[in-house]
Structure formats: C-alpha cells, structure tokens
Design a protein around this nucleic acid. Structure first.
Lengths: 144, 144
DNA sequence: TTACGTGCAAAAATTTTGCAACCAA
DNA sequence: TTGGTTGCAAAATTTTTGCACGTAA
C-alpha cells in the first residue's frame, strides 16, 4: 500500500517540489481505493483550496503520471487516475462501476490467446467491470 | 461482411431516413477495415459535401451506434467507430495501432478468470493492440 | 404534408498554454 | 536567490444543443 509519505518522498526524490497542494493530492490518492477523474480531484481539492485552478490539477496529474506515481486509464466517461500499482507481477483489474474500487486480477489472458504470426503485439488491455460487494449491498438496501 | 445495402436497409427498417449523406457514411464504414475517429469521418465526408458540419457527423455516428450499426471504442487518443461485428459468438479484438484494422479473437478470458463471490460482473474488455502484417512491412520498408 | 435531418451558430465541456507572481529548497 | 509552482486568462479541442430551413417518405 502507498502511504502519503512514500508518494511525497518519491516525488521529492525525482526533483519535484513538495507543495502543500501536492501533499493533499498524495493524501487523496492514498486514501482512495479506486479511480478518480480530474473533476473528482478538482472538486475534492477545492474544499481546501478556495482559489484552486483546474489547470494546476491537470498539470499535477500529468506530472504524477509521468513520474509513475499515478496510472491513467481511459473510460467511456473520460480519463481517470489512480495510484500506480506497486505489484511487480503483471496483472489486470476488476473495476467497480459505482465507486471505482479496483481489485487485481493475476490471470493474464495473453497466455491463452492465439495471435497470427504476422501481427506484432505491443500491448493489451483486460478489464472486468461490475459492482463491488459494498455497492451491491447499498443498491439492494436502497431498493428496499 | 456488411454491404452498403445491408447497412442502409438496417437503418431504414429502424425508422431512420435514408439521406445521401447517410448512404455515404454507410459506404465509408463498409469499405473501412478498422476504426475511424469522428475527425477521420468528417474529413472523408467533407470531400463530397463541402458545406458539411461537424455536428451532423457526430449526430449520425451517435445514432448509428445507438442502432447497433456501429460500435464505439475508446482509445487513448479518443473515441473511434467501426461497423458492429455481425458474429453472433462473443469475441474480442486484435487492433492495429497504425491502420485501425481489427481481427476477431475467439478466446474469451472470462472463462479462466477467478472473480470474488461478492463482485457482480457486468461487462469486460479484452483488447490486444499492435501492428498488423501490412503496417509492420511498410514500417520495415520505410526504415530501409 | 409532416416529421426527421441538416447547416449554422453558439454553448458547453475538457484540456492546454503563456505569463507574472509566488514559494520551496 | 532561483528555478519550479501556481493562479489567472485565454486559447485550442472536442462534443452538444437550439433553431430555422430542407427533404425523405
């Protein structure tokens, strides 16, 4: 698991300055189990920084992604970010459509996939979407 | 394979009017082996319709996707469209990053994937990206 | 004829860039 | 002090919406 200190330390060691805003960003991602959109991040940050501008959020998300602190995934609804997985083994994700929570999936389908000889594979994407335990329960409760 | 007639007929049978522009759109997708961005489509259509507006292209792409004529995929560079696969069997895709060409992959990784009991799966995505035979050869030729 | 489709204009939403003031190191 | 960081303003992109006119059925 990533702690705020680890994230901030990583940014610092890579030459970035540790500003209050970046500490808060680190805390946000350290505390979030899943993906956050730039808008989610902006809205959260605004609570603490009244004069916050969207472009700074974007710049920091971009920088943190380039540093390998965050990873970016493109969903139908747009781009989202979460802490980069520390697991060294290659893996994929189970993603909750409601809260954005992710679980790792260790199984990689490429082992079983037959690729035509002439095709040069560069990357692959395997994502499973649905609703996590908590969200299923909440939904059931809401339905009565 | 889809022919222009089949696509147009499908649109017509679903209550859409067959305009000249939509026929051209149908032909474009019938002739394209891979994914096209809204911009690709707009540029192609502009050759024939000088006063064409981007919003009509968007509207038609949207409508055709809702009708199930087109399918939409989100790439890092943005949204793209291609004809919806007619294969009845569930399948995935091998996608060329250069030309957008797609091959079907019959293998579905969900069979082998272990999902936590509490997680309710809604959908999944398995896509393999790389370069097709033609694009690899062209690249090699260009490199000398 | 009539409802759907189109172009035009403008708005909305998202992301990027230049610049001057600010601040961590 | 100094170069990276931020807010502000504005631009660039991408996508959506309202409206009047045009057209397929």
């Amino acid at each position: 698991m990533h702690t705020v200190e680890e994230i901030v330390g990583r940014m610092s060691s890579q030459g970035l300055r540790v500003t209050d805003q970046r500490k808060t960003l680190a805390k946000l991602f350290a505390d979030s189990p899943g993906y956050l959109s730039p808008k989610d991040v902006y809205e959260y940050m605004c609570k603490k920084y009244s004069g916050l501008s969207f472009d700074t959020v974007y710049r920091n998300l971009r920088v943190m992604e380039e540093l390998g602190v965050l990873e970016q995934v493109v969903f139908e609804e747009g781009v989202k970010f979460k802490l980069h997985c520390r697991e060294h083994e290659h893996h994929h994700h189970l993603i909750c459509l409601q809260c954005g929570l992710t679980y790792p999936i260790t199984y990689c389908p490429m082992e079983q996939t037959v690729i035509p000889d002439e095709f040069r594979v560069v990357k692959h994407k395997f994502e499973v979407f649905g609703y996590c335990k908590t969200c299923v329960q909440e939904d059931a409760a809401a339905q009565g």
